[in-house]
Design a protein around this nucleic acid. Structure first.
Length: 506
RNA sequence: CGGGACGUGGCUCAGUCUGGUAGAGCACAGCGUUCGGGACGCUGGGGUCGCAGGUUCAAAUCCUGCCGUCCCGACCA
């Protein structure tokens, strides 16, 4: 009769969202903070999720003709210097390597010796180092387009870190392309944004708004930055992927030039696009509840856990055989081209076993005991339903139906998230209503409030800045999917032809 | 980097004000009883009290510095 909490995670989302987030991750065993400031250890349950995300994205990239390559972790400082806006954007958060040797002092302490004549930065992003290679690879229009992606770690020395959402080191992919024409580069930017939208919505079950960033929010050095924006359960916006049209800015900086079919020397048109382990943070904050993580089946670390229930020693062999046989059968089933991922958990640790898997977010939990076996059935719990809501199914029916059930869970999660976003998205045309929307009732301990305000904006950075200073609300994106509509800027009242998404952001 | 809170077994915390043998619950291991159940009993393992100095006969406790975590801000995927 232990002290049984109402929810597996404390505090609840309502009570303290940021702390809930930390606790959910801890309880799921996906990752932990490391002894290194701002860095995380991604544990197997979290890394499996990342592997599935990587695999799906990688397949999609390759379908569009992109090939993988790898570029150095270290970048000479003068490479970064080449693009002015880029310098301004990244210089402050660069980790710098200044020495190449350690020597022991009299106390046995290791002291950096061997100062580098040219310090190196640890890549915060790779436009410049990849641009250097591209400048050598591109001679003629016949060499174009160049379509490259790398899976890598990057370092941005952030002031404030949050596991998965903003860590000093994080894992990501960065795609870099060069094209002969502006139009082709813009097409590529859009194409990759669509890959991210698809990844978010169809795999992670995170509904997103696609659009363009404002001048203030765009990538340093980009001509335009496009993005996917999602609403978390605290109603803040999370940028979950970006695709940049870089114009000729980086081509000029890195001397990416080619001979056109008209025999003229021209600068290439480049793009870059990235998504990171932040997606995992977004997934957690979109779907998880007060009992822990909920993983969408298409990227879930595992799909189903089989939990044999063994009451008496004499049953043990029989129950285990039945379980192992079902595990093998399920592993032979293909779900979107890959085998069903099955865990068998035979630990005798009581109900804690069941709750562990709930907190880890596995889509399906299956209990298998002598009673079930007698009727050739299994006892199934779904993570998109209440923990107590479990039901018996014929074993064959379960195996035959598992893909459909997983899809059902996938769809439920997406629909739930979409409904939530819709419920907290408003068209707001009145400044007072706008301010009220973004102001918590309780200023001391702000409750979950606000959401996405679809409001008119004149496009002036000054208005954007005023709103940010007053409410800490920014233009998250200028959505593509909307009709042009005349209105007045929510801040200054000047005419505007479009609504934009205003929200507090991660 | 500014403001605030905090740092004691894996986790949550007591002990700090008033210096005097490091504690509890949960978790973990063993045995037993239970169990379609986030069980119960007994036994046991595990902590140089974030780090480094200082004061003192004596420091988790007092002083100084540093490091880290969380929250709010500035910055950002």
């Amino acid at each position: 009769m232990g002290k049984q909490a109402k929810t597996a995670i404390e505090p609840t989302r309502e009570e303290n969202y940021p702390e809930w987030y930390q606790e959910v991750i801890k309880a799921s065993d996906m990752a932990e903070i490391s002894p290194v400031r701002g860095c995380m250890v991604i544990k197997p349950w979290g890394y499996a999720l990342w592997e599935n995300i990587m695999r799906s994205l990688d397949d999609m990239f390759k379908t569009t003709g992109v090939k993988n390559a790898y570029f150095p972790l270290f970048i000479p400082i003068n490479f970064l210097e080449k693009e002015a806006a880029h310098v301004e954007g990244f210089a402050k958060e660069c980790a710098v390597v200044t020495h190449h040797r350690l020597e022991q002092d009299e106390n046995g302490r290791l002291i950096p010796a061997g100062k580098l004549t040219e310090p190196l930065i640890v890549r915060p992003t790779s436009e410049t180092i990849i641009g250097d290679s591209f400048s050598k690879w591109v001679k003629s229009y016949r060499d174009l387009p160049i379509l490259i992606n790398q899976w890598a770690n990057v370092v941005r020395w952030e002031m404030r870190t949050r596991i998965f959402l903003r860590t000093s080191e994080f894992l990501w992919q960065e795609g870099h392309t060069v094209h002969a024409t502006r139009e082709e580069a813009i097409d590529r930017t859009q194409m990759m944004l669509e890959v991210y939208r698809k990844m978010a919505e169809e795999y992670l079950a995170i509904p997103v708004i696609t659009g363009e960033k404002s001048e203030a929010e765009k990538f340093p050095g980009a001509e335009t930055t496009t993005c996917i924006e999602a609403m978390m359960q605290d109603r803040k916006a999370l940028q979950a992927g970006t695709s940049h049209f870089l114009g000729q800015n980086f081509a000029r900086a890195s001397e990416i030039k080619f001979q056109s079919d008209k025999e003229a020397e021209e600068y290439g048109w480049t793009t870059s696009w990235g998504s990171s382990t932040r997606l995992i943070g977004g997934l957690i904050m979109t779907h998880s509840d007060d009992n822990g993580v909920i993983l969408p089946p298409r990227v879930a670390s595992s799909h189903v856990v089989l939990m044999p229930i063994i009451r008496k020693d004499k049953d043990k062999q029989m129950v285990m055989d039945y379980t192992d046989e079902l595990a093998a059968r399920l592993r032979n089933i293909s779900y979107y081209g890959y085998p069903i991922r099955v865990e068998v958990d035979a630990r005798d640790i009581g109900g804690a076993r069941n709750w562990e898997w709930i907190k880890k977010g596995i889509p399906l939990r299956v209990e298998i005991g002598p009673k079930d076996i007698a009727s050739d059935s299994v006892f199934v719990g779904r993570r998109d339903k209440d923990p107590k809501d479990k039901s018996a199914m014929g074993k064959d029916a379960f195996a035959d139906d598992i893909c459909r059930i997983l899809d059902e869970i996938q769809n439920t999660l997406f629909q739930r998230a979409l409904d939530y976003r819709k419920a907290h998205t408003r068209n707001i045309d009145d400044k007072e209503a706008f301010d009220h929307f973004f102001t918590p009732e309780n200023k001391e301990r702000p409750e979950i409030h606000g959401g996405f305000a679809m409001s008119h904006w004149c496009g002036d950075g000054a208005c954007e800045k005023k709103i940010k200073e007053r409410l800490n609300v920014t233009v998250r994106c200028i959505p593509y999917d909307q009709e042009n509509e005349d209105g007045k800027c929510i801040e200054c009242g000047k005419p505007s032809g479009k609504r934009v998404v205003f929200a507090k952001a991660y």
